[in-house]
Nucleic acid binder design. Structure first.
Lengths: 162, 162
DNA sequence: GTGCAAGTTGAAGTCGACTTCAAGTCAAGC
DNA sequence: GCTTGACTTGAAGTCGACTTCAACTTGCAC
């Protein structure tokens, strides 16, 4: 399990240690999330700090960021060393409020479901589940685009061609 | 805004009332989530109860179910009337535990982030963010496949061809 | 110096949940 | 009866985050 040489990781080693597939790491590199030196034979060699960047990206995804957003956040942290408390706390705090919003939305949904049990609900007239008001609010990771259909808030699902 | 005739909704009306696009409703029909009668001219006409089914599907998505899973859950509820308290409570309770798991995972992530602020963390040796142990646990809606790489738990990301 | 696992590339495929398109048909108001 | 907007279909496109493929090259153990 030891590193083969002076602290540089092959893509396979980074994959094993980060829990990601090598193909994912190459993909991350293409997006500019991580970066590797090359051997004379053109193989990638990663600095150990890359492990940190990968962990950061995975955590970012868990808070609901896209890889593109993760890249932006990553740009505000140093590439070659651990961030200082100050550097880190800004990021962490904005993530915390994201998490809080997600938790909040889940709590509200839970209350609605409980209400529905109590009132024998799902009748068309006044079930809370039918009131879509806060659909766009905070939805979990990855789900934002799936559950939002309210044109007055948040990004459009696929504004590409039309 | 009134219904044009005897309680049957056109696809446009159902779209407006449910907040979904007509294309989404046709897609739901193709998946067997909803069903429509037809006019002599082959246009869809929906019973009002369809509104309930659609609402159910959207709620299911918010708890993290796929449309396929929603269809399965839907099969256990009556198609033409509001479910009884008994019929509903089984579903609602299983959703609640899903929600609880999701909240739980978010709480844990939040604690980790707080820890990282306090300890000037993100050093490679012992930052909690690096310990991926519970990655596969509960992740939010839609995110399960993105964040899971642990072969010992949960569904494989894309086991299709290989 | 050879064998073979592990690396390289770009292009194409996958997944779920839809949307968009093209080419036509229906329904309802005037 | 005509116009026009809402509807019909199947096929193809979109999105993000990867994975898979094919054809090839490197690097390390023996």
């Amino acid at each position: 399990m030891g590193l083969s040489r002076n602290d540089l990781l092959t893509i396979g080693q980074l994959a094993e240690r980060s829990g990601l597939a090598t193909s994912a790491l190459r993909y991350y590199e293409k997006l500019g999330l991580i970066h590797a030196e090359r051997t004379s034979g053109n193989q990638r060699r990663y600095a150990r700090a890359t492990l940190r960047r990968v962990a950061f990206v995975r955590a970012a995804q868990r808070v609901g960021l896209s890889l593109e957003e993760a890249r932006t956040a990553l740009d505000r942290l140093p590439e070659d060393r651990a961030p200082s408390t100050a550097e880190w706390s800004g990021v962490a705090q904005s993530w915390q409020s994201r998490i809080d919003r997600q938790i909040d939305e889940l709590e509200r949904l839970k209350v609605k479901l409980t209400g529905c049990i109590g009132c024998g609900c799902l009748s068309l007239s006044r079930c809370a589940l039918y009131n879509a008001e806060d659909r766009a609010a905070a939805a979990g990771p990855g789900a934002r685009y799936l559950l939002t259909r309210d044109p007055s808030s948040g990004p459009e699902p696929h504004p590409s061609t039309g």
